[in-house]
Design a protein around this nucleic acid. Sequence first.
RNA 1: GUGGGCGUAGCUCAGCUGGUAGAGCACCCGGUUGUGGUCCGGGAUGUCGCGGGUUCGAGCCCCGUCGCUCACCCCA
Length: 423
Amino acid sequence: MSKANQIQAPKGVSEYLPPQSRKFESVRHALLEPAKSAGYELIELPVFEDTELFTRGVGESTDVVSKEMYTFEDRGGRSITLRPEGTAGVMRAVIEHGLDRGQLPVKLYYSGPFFRAERPQAGRYRQFYQVGIEAIGIQDAALDAEVIAIADAGFKSIGLKKYRLEITSLGDSASRAKHRVELVKFIEKLNLDEATRTRASINPLRLFDDKRDEIKDQMASAPLLLDFLSAESLKDFEDVQKHLKALKIDYIINPRMVRGLDYYTGTTFEFVHELLGAQSGIGGGGRYDGLMAQLGGQELSGIGFGLGIDRCVLAADAEGISFDQEFTSDLFIIPLGDESKSRALTVAQELQNAGFRVEISFGDRALKGSMKAADKSNAEYVLVLGDSEISSGTVELKQMSTGKTSSVTLTSLKDYLRSVSGK
RNA sequence: GUGGGCGUAGCUCAGCUGGUAGAGCACCCGGUUGUGGUCCGGGAUGUCGCGGGUUCGAGCCCCGUCGCUCACCCCA
């Protein structure tokens, strides 16, 4: 098999094959459960949207929109983009279908693939998976705290320990405007290369996030947005912290935190894992005041988060967390001879319908080979189904862990399995 | 878009200063009739990423190219 002209997966996509895929499933489940427990409901949306949704919602000045979108023209000449993040799409659906006309807040959760045309690296993929929630329509520091708590509960439920929560507040627009003037003045005096200066002119906050030492050193004395918060914004931020303390959720204030999406205002947060490489953010989110209106809806505030399933899987690996749900079947049926195959299928069907996990040995391998297959499948019990069993109606059920066999009639098989498995 | 590392069997890798390819795991068959795990014996599998060059001879050297990977920008 030559690899030269083999079709490969597109560059930079994350794929989960068994048995690794079990981890993915467990992680997604763990991240989703806390949201359900808090009364959030599923919203399932398309993975592609009108391009304008993102240019208007996420912001033209962001890297996500300016250089990382998968955009193409569909057959009707419309510009379509594979969703790079989840919030904009949720807002679109909420506005379009009037979900915000009922009781507030609207509480939604979702999970699925997202797409960004970036250069891939550890923990960064072109197709990646997120779990997200959005709570729309109520401005309340307690809600901010709940959203953060839901994310935290998800990570804890995976078993993650080596992560930290960083929070800050971007304040209201007046606070940000005041700070921006001072920050721009400060940056003008710095010694920066052309590319960095251009970046700063688009959004000066971005310089806080630069990883290069020469930039970090220069930015050490830069004016911080937190120091420019209005009394109202500050009170809100303190309330969020008060609630987090009540919830016993540890956090650190990171006044230099920058988020890549333009719509954030007020409370913003990020969960950072300590054992991952350069891409260490396992989740993040914040409040967005202007987004709904920006997209043509009411002036409603919202808050939400996106958690990276891929990165959580990597983090779980890094922490050595094992997902102990081994793939085990209750019963493995080995038919001997063509006549018995049909019978094996019907026996399996009946037991599967009764809630047991039952596998069949397919093909015409020797009994020994089938036994090995049964062994590998971790089946609890094995039964050989040949002519004599079918005519007598009685099978020898072998318990693999002990090697012991017991005679059971085919008609009582279900009851027998129930009694020994407790299912 | 920019930079570093790496591309040898399904997987993990070995291959000394160039002499036409190996191990472990996994897989399949067998160790006398229809009962697994251990053990023993046997077996299949590679255009050594691709193309070109140097050489009597290249997996090993040179050039190009593609891919993977890590990092920068940025982000889940």
